[in-house]
């Protein structure tokens, strides 16, 4: 997602923290975050182009072979270097500290928290599991109304921006409040299944990746070939998908 998407996911998640999580996150957040996880959820995007962090770039995606509409960890996450591998890795780093305070390796737990929060966001953006051949839609040039862009940016930013302008009085916080209300009422029966992980796992990103490539094939790539102008029809039919992914994302991160 873009900055607004990550901010929304982390803001929603904050509302579902249990007491121990509130305490632990506050301890781990950098000073400049002002106690807000949402303030630092884009940090991995801010640094990924810096020379010393360039290796993190591949952790924002999983590489689905072209036209395959399913996800396989062994095929799509070579050497664990992908968004699902990163979620497992940073979950284990944070666990190693909370389960056994005498852990030998001292990870940077502040970075682990910011990476985990960001990648939990990215794995829910369908085109972050998009096809390797078109770089998850980055190479699919389209128009968003009158603006030239690419399909990946439509899903990272444009759908959220248009929703904010059209329905939420250009206010991200009003959009977030609307998602929080939908979680309380419309999706309340779904929240328990969104929260749970099979087999007592602490984190379970693989099904999230499978959902995303399924949504990418059904919604993102459909009727969006190179050179297409995407307008109201695409926006109105895809906005519910994006809003549900952001809300689900916040629940699962918390």
């Amino acid at each position: 997602w873009g900055d607004d998407g990550h901010y929304a996911v982390c803001k929603i998640a904050q509302g579902y923290f249990e007491e121990e999580t509130v305490v632990a996150v506050k301890k781990l957040l950098p000073e400049y975050a002002g106690g807000e996880l949402a303030a630092v959820c884009s940090w991995p995007d801010d640094i990924k182009k810096l020379p010393q962090w360039r290796w993190t770039g591949a952790l924002h995606f999983a590489d689905t072979p072209d036209f395959k509409c399913n996800y396989e960890y062994s095929r799509d996450c070579p050497k664990d270097v992908c968004v699902t591998g990163a979620i497992f890795n940073y979950t284990n780093q944070l666990l190693s500290a909370s389960e056994n305070s005498h852990s030998i390796v001292h990870y940077n737990l502040t970075e682990a928290l910011m990476f985990l929060s960001h990648y939990m966001g990215d794995i829910h953006q369908p085109l972050h599991e998009g096809f390797l051949g078109d770089l998850g839609g980055n190479r699919v040039k389209v128009n968003w109304y009158s603006q030239e862009t690419n399909l990946h940016r439509v899903w990272d930013d444009m759908i959220i921006d248009s929703a904010r302008e059209t329905y939420y009085n250009s206010s991200l916080s009003i959009m977030i409040q609307s998602l929080q209300a939908k979680l309380k009422y419309g999706w309340s029966n779904d929240v328990p299944s969104w929260k749970s992980c099979p087999l007592n796992q602490k984190a379970c990103p693989n099904p999230y990746a499978s959902e995303s490539i399924d949504l990418a094939c059904k919604y993102a790539y459909t009727n969006a070939t190179v050179g297409t102008t995407l307008g109201d029809y695409y926006f109105l039919s895809r906005l519910p998908v994006v809003e549900k992914r952001l809300a689900q994302d916040g629940i699962r991160l918390a």
Binding site: Y16, F17, E20, T21, L95, C197, K202, I251
Partner: peptide, 16 residues
């Protein structure tokens, strides 16, 4: 739910 599961994990008893 992921952060809640991580931070609610009880510390293992230090091995004797």
């Amino acid at each position: 739910a992921t952060l809640n599961r991580i931070f609610s994990a009880k510390p293992k008893l230090a091995r004797a």
